[in-house]
Design a protein around this nucleic acid. Structure first.
Lengths: 248, 248
DNA sequence: CCAAAAGTGTTAGACCTACACCCATGA
DNA sequence: TCATGGGTGTAGGTCTAACACTTTTGG
């Protein structure tokens, strides 16, 4: 059984071509089989699809999500959606907000609990293939037409990320395991939409002692190869609790 | 009609006797009439009450809230709950999080969208009288037994407040319109659970230029009377957007 | 040897921390 | 005149902002 009045949607962010990207899908009842494990849940969801032409149109894209099955914990189910749509677990995932205006979805009263996830680019192409026809990355400033109030949800999630990134070390989740300081700086510049001073940025980062030099370097670049860093998990965990000050 | 799977609960914070207080109630179907305007919504809610003995017990207290009627916007309905339970509008109110573990409420699958509100002490006694027998302030560290996972919700809201207060000028909503710097400092000390240095605190606050001297003073105090300040609404609005750094 | 990005240090000003005494008021 | 809390300044250290050139690499 599913809860007809509640959906769980994930705003999945990636960082590619120096842009924030969002993973969207064109949901089809066929795809839902991946999520909804009982035949009944699947049938119930399908009925909802039939009633909303926008859900089936090729013109509209939507956030990855489904209605919440009655036998699933909320946070866990968001994780499950991520796992199925990207093939990944242990992804950074956080509840954004619940959207509940009464006319946000035509024909039904649906509250959407929105989450945002941050995906490491090493995994951007993994597993998407299995449901690839209708799942696609879009640059945040070139979003297609989105169903219902999904655009509002995406920008609320982005706003939340932008806030979060200033006070907690979450941005790192958008980078590969080993990254250069320039990649990190560009990431912050893109999220905060602001140019940063390279020397000051490096000093600030290095004072946090969050980064570990891997003693490796980029290869095959037509310029001086940059050092690769990873981040120190224990200091990361401490900073996550205590907060940090990244107002640069 | 109400949405049986969704409730809206408010964690209402006040600041009294130099403690954070929370407004709780012992809900009775009778009280619900104040919220649920159609007879049908009222009846449906009553049935839910009948099934959960904890809801009716005198031993347990709960957060102020009800199930969400189908014809109410989510955020607006939270405001309405506040209005009815405290008699006040234009209160600071913010969504905290949605709680959705599957067994958090016995017998039903209910997701709770939690909000927190900050109440100015000038209004602490206003209007409570109308439903007074079952609505009461409790100090945060002397909470009674709470139904379901309400205690977890209260502490999540407190954690959110504690974070919020460091980066946005929200704490002021817990003070009367005119307040002294010592009151403000005590408020921050209580929320952050940390002693602050008076001289440094005052310098920091005054540098923000958020406070306006009202040219008034306390009266009838057995010590030097403190100046009364209010805060500057335009600077408040700017800081609310830009954020501030109150990590003291 | 050229193009491209990596990497680096200093200075001036702002802000933060720690710390102790006098002032105004009502009882 | 006493008890109570209100109110203030300074010095040392740390953090921030602004700023330009040299290094390394592959082609």
């Amino acid at each position: 059984m599913i809860l007809k009045n509640i959906s769980v949607d994930c705003v999945i962010f990636g960082f590619q071509n120096n842009k924030i990207n969002v993973l969207l899908w064109q949901a089809e009842p066929g795809l839902l089989e991946k999520f909804l494990t009982t035949a009944q849940a699947y049938e119930e969801s399908k009925v909802i699809f039939e009633k909303n032409p926008a859900l089936k149109s090729d013109k509209f894209w939507g956030l990855i999500g489904t209605h919440l099955p009655t036998d699933e914990d909320l946070d866990n189910y968001a994780k499950k959606i991520l796992k199925v749509s990207t093939g990944l677990k242990d992804i950074f995932l956080k509840q954004v907000q619940t959207f509940g205006n009464k006319n946000r979805v035509p024909h039904y009263r649906v509250l959407t609990v929105a989450y945002y996830a941050l995906i490491n680019p090493e995994y951007h192409n993994l597993e998407l293939s299995s449901i690839a026809k209708s799942v696609k990355w879009f640059e945040i400033d070139k979003l297609p037409d989105l169903i219902f109030d999904s655009k509002e949800i995406v920008f609320s999630a982005l706003k939340k990320l932008r806030e979060e990134v200033q006070y907690h070390p979450v941005g790192f989740h958008l980078l590969p395991e080993k990254f250069t300081l320039t990649q990190l700086q560009t990431l912050y510049e893109v999220i905060l939409d602001k140019k940063l001073d390279t020397r000051n940025f490096r000093k600030k980062i290095q004072n946090m002692e969050l980064l570990i030099d891997t003693n490796k370097k980029q290869t095959n670049v037509a310029h001086r190869a940059a050092k690769l860093y990873k981040f120190d998990v224990s200091i990361y965990n401490r900073l996550k609790e205590e907060g940090l000050n990244f107002r640069i």
